[in-house]
Design a protein around this nucleic acid. Structure first.
Lengths: 344, 344
DNA sequence: CGTTAGCAGTCGCCCTGTCCGACTGCTAAT
DNA sequence: ATTAGCAGTCGGACAGGGCGACTGCTAACG
């Protein structure tokens, strides 16, 4: 076990390395860490830290840099910080002013989070467990072409073109839509099948399409998440060499970023920090991820930050946390009564 | 004016530089360009090319690289190439198989184009001049919260939440929607105002929201375009140094890419090539853009490729062209019009 | 026993000089 | 007009040396 002073030195080293991105020397610690000892004493302590694997040295005569294990201790010993109140007010205010639209909220959250953390922010759409139909609308576009608009509980709107083999009038489409709306209200994909009786071939084709859209919606694990701040992270010195940058961008573009960074299970409404080699994906093993769930049990999304292990944890963790609270509130309001009345 | 042989040498230099990304020496030209002369003769010719500004030299004793002017002559002298027929068939086939959904087509087009050109592909949504209402739908979510679904001619579906000051029943919403559908069919944003008579305050609020959505839709010049291939372009040696990469990514993330690369006017259904310094935006002055319009007069979109000036023009131009034809056809079908087949 | 000062040793960085290879520019011959 | 040949130029790779920063160690100190 480390002594209190040793831990203090480690914490200073981590915070110093976070701001400077340069190896920390014993002199630096002795002079600025606030403990009145000489650099020689600090060196003795650092020797222990190195032995225990909390810090690394690039070579014999260089300052030390924190290891993942060092970051971990640093993060775990961080007090439970909150965003400054005026910051919170400002954020809430901005969210009030934006258009009332889920996508707008998420995009805004990504932009704000990227701006605050100076790193890549990722915000994934709230995902329902089993999507339920709220309303079906059918609009004729041409003789044999119609637009299906599916309003799901949430609310989420899906659209799809349907082309028929024969002419189908708007009247017929309206009739079909009414029929569906009578029997399909609040129904899930699985619940649809038993309802399909006495359908005309046209209606059969439509209901098949509806089922298909819903199946797709249920199956897809993630929609393309909102992403912002690539330009910020590229300014970090660790991405100066092309390799790391390319790895990250490839990951981002492959649209599997979220799958790669999300831990097996996120406990509700706590902020998780995954440091360097704790990551599953090799491409971001020198990155850290700060991530949290938001939303309500019926519809939960994910919000997080990806950046170099040398990131400003003490600022970023509260930012992620507070934004997850805001989004939870906004999404909760959407479901509001709806969620309660249909959940039993 | 350049002699035929000088032009031949220039073309060889350009094509060679495109494949190798390395300065081309006079020996290289003498041996491989297919004209049986010595390197000394070639040097004389290259001296002319350099004097006229078609090629540049990094320093006295180095091979030469094409200037923007050289690329321009090369591109202009390219024969009107078409994609190989089997390639065309393959592409068309893939587009037939994908989901019938405009967004899916565009995303697919971006991915295919990025893959074929090994560069960044950009596909912008077809933009209507003045959007027209096709159908209005209002769904109650909670006592005071409703979802407005606006189906525009095109078809495009817009959604927006409306929160009222008092309870509003689904029945009242349905009545309002019916009212709007009777008078608003095919109407533009400007055409709405005269129709607004005898409205309840609730209906007034709804119609205001509709007008607002349509105004926004008309005003926004570009939606976020589909983009793919960043990971490909980053493999190009010209982006090895961080600076250029950062510039490009910043441009991409700022969502002004399209505005920056699109020339003042695109003639319908011709492929435009903008080389290096011909670009408006300084951030891509060492990039070339190959871009074309697609769609029909009522709804035109943009499809293009951004890459280093040293890009494979002879492959990429036909790719952009053929994809623009496919998209034109698909969009045309949606509007129920015969797509104008482009003449080439 | 913890702490400290001092000194030797190590290593990266930067600057310099040198050599080598690649290519051009020029000139004189064909 | 074309060519061969030669001198000149430039960048890249490499090695050596000085410099600065920092550590590791040891012996002395309270």
């Amino acid at each position: 076990m480390l002594t209190a002073r040793t831990k203090l030195i480690l914490k200073y080293i981590v915070s110093q390395y976070i701001t400077d991105a340069a190896p920390v020397s014993s002199q630096n610690v002795a002079q600025n860490a606030g403990l009145s000892v000489s650099s020689a004493t600090v060196r003795n302590e650092i020797a222990i830290l190195e032995q225990e694997g909390y810090v690394l040295r690039a070579h014999t005569s260089a300052g030390c840099i924190p290891s993942d294990k060092g970051y971990r201790l640093y993060v775990d010993s961080l007090p439970n910080l909150n965003l400054p109140v005026e910051r919170q007010r400002l954020l809430s205010h901005i969210f009030m002013q934006v258009e009332k639209e889920v996508d707008e909220w998420l995009k805004l959250a990504a932009t704000m989070l990227a701006e605050m953390s100076r790193n890549v922010a990722v915000v994934a759409t709230p995902k329902q467990n089993d999507c339920r139909i709220k309303y079906v609308e059918l609009v004729s576009l041409q003789d044999r072409l119609a637009l299906l608009v599916l309003i799901l509980v949430g609310p989420k709107v899906k659209q799809k073109l349907i082309s028929f083999d024969a002419n189908v009038s708007q009247a017929a489409l309206t009739t079909a839509a009414n029929k569906f709306n009578e029997s399909f209200g609040g129904i899930t994909a699985r619940g649809m099948n038993p309802q399909l009786e006495n359908l005309t071939p046209i209606e059969k084709q439509i209901s098949d399409t509806i089922a298909q859209v819903m199946k797709l919606e249920d199956e897809q694990e993630f929609e393309a998440p909102y992403l912002d701040g690539l330009h910020l992270i590229l300014k970090q010195p660790e991405f100066a060499g092309g390799k790391q940058m390319k790895d990250l961008i490839e990951l981002v573009e492959s649209r599997t970023l979220l799958k790669m960074i999300r831990p097996e299970q996120l406990k509700e409404h706590t902020v998780h920090v995954i440091i360097g080699s704790e990551n599953k994906s090799a491409a971001i093993q020198n990155c850290s991820v700060i991530i949290s769930q938001y939303g309500i049990p019926e519809a939960t999304g994910t919000i997080g930050v990806v950046g170099p292990t040398r990131m400003a944890y003490s600022n970023t963790i509260p930012s992620v946390h507070y934004l997850s609270i805001i989004l939870t509130e906004l999404v909760g309001n959407l479901y509001g009564k709806q969620a309660r009345s249909s959940s039993n």
